[in-house]
């Protein structure tokens, strides 16, 4: 995968997904060491090009790059001033002239990482574009499920919430179905995208039916800007119909795990109690995010597998 873009899961085959997950498992060990650093990407430059603020994802990429000894540079741009002053592609070309080895792009509009990749020599990793894709989130989710359940093939996964506006949902749908899981989505009808079957999932408006017998429940964050956006009447009604708590979780398999891409709106998507305790695995997801991103940077911007530096 050296030098290749990672723009989405939709275009990723099963072999590649498995390679990334296997590599991430190897990377996890580095995070447990006393000195959490290997020289694999020494002398390589990784640029975080974030047009939309995201402390979590940006930090995760930054730590991942630093654990591999890459120089990580944060290039934050306010997208509103950008569209007036400088074209998006000009920014990308300017950056490219500085010869980075990988560019991580986050933007609030779908398709921007793709357009930037079209003009950039350096490989582009999509760190989330609008409601399109968030491939690294889906990969770390798959890693988490794989390590919890020992497999992905044959599992049932329910994704709950604002599917229509969720890049996390799309990427996870593509990823889990490609690895042989069954994926269901559920939410109020105003939060389900039109012709959702094109994504290869079954849609439910009953949480109970959606959760029936599933192995994994993934709750999505209700974006703050949607709280008053007219697609659902109130937070109270949302949390009572689609918010997860231990009582509703009983519809799922007894050993079902609960996931959330974070940050959690406590009491909205997840009850306070579920947000903090098993079967939720939210902090494992975050931890795995670093290893997963290390794996990707290694596979895309690196050469050799990290050697111990004793």
């Amino acid at each position: 995968m050296i030098g290749q873009d990672l723009l989405g899961i939709e275009s990723l085959d099963r072999e590649r997904i498995e390679l990334i997950l296997e590599t991430a498992e190897k990377m996890q060990e580095i995070g447990t060491r006393d000195v959490k650093k290997v020289p694999t990407l020494r002398g390589r430059t990784v640029v975080n090009l974030f047009f939309e603020p995201s402390t979590r994802t940006q930090t995760s990429f930054e730590i991942a790059g630093k654990r591999l000894a890459a120089d990580v540079v944060n290039f934050s741009v306010s997208s509103s001033s950008l569209s007036k002053a400088e074209s998006l592609l000009d920014t990308a070309k300017t950056l490219d002239a500085m010869d980075p080895d990988a560019v991580i792009v986050r933007h609030k509009v779908a398709g921007v990482p793709q357009r930037i990749a079209d003009v950039l020599d350096a490989p582009v990793i999509n760190a989330g574009d609008g409601a399109h894709e968030h491939p690294t989130q889906a990969l770390l989710d798959m890693l988490t499920v794989y390590q919890e359940k020992g497999r992905i093939e044959g599992l049932s996964v329910a994704i709950i919430g604002d599917i229509a506006h969720s890049r996390v949902a799309r990427s996870n749908i593509y990823g889990f179905t490609r690895l042989g899981a069954e994926v269901r989505v559920a939410g109020p009808p105003t939060m389900l995208p039109p012709q959702v079957d094109v994504l290869g999932v079954k849609a439910y408006t009953s949480l109970r039916e959606a959760l029936d017998g599933v192995d994994v429940v993934m709750a999505l964050r209700i974006q703050n800007e949607r709280l008053g956006g007219g697609i659902f009447p109130s937070v109270r009604e949302y949390s009572s119909t689609f918010g997860l708590d231990r009582a509703k979780l009983r519809f799922a398999r007894p050993d079902a795990i609960v996931m959330h891409p974070g940050p959690v709106n406590r009491g909205v998507e997840l009850s306070h109690d579920l947000a903090d305790h098993r079967p939720s695995v939210i902090l494992d997801q975050v931890r795995n995010g670093v290893a997963l991103r290390m794996a990707l940077l290694y596979l895309i911007a690196g050469r050799d597998f990290p050697q111990d530096q004793e």
């Binding site: 779908a110 398709g111 574009d129 399109h132 506006h165 995208p193 039109p194």
Partner: peptide, 13 residues
């Protein structure tokens, strides 16, 4: 157009 492509691409339909 709102439909299969807008759902796949995540662009407003």
């Amino acid at each position: 157009n709102e439909g299969r492509m807008s759902t796949r691409l995540g662009l407003p339909g």
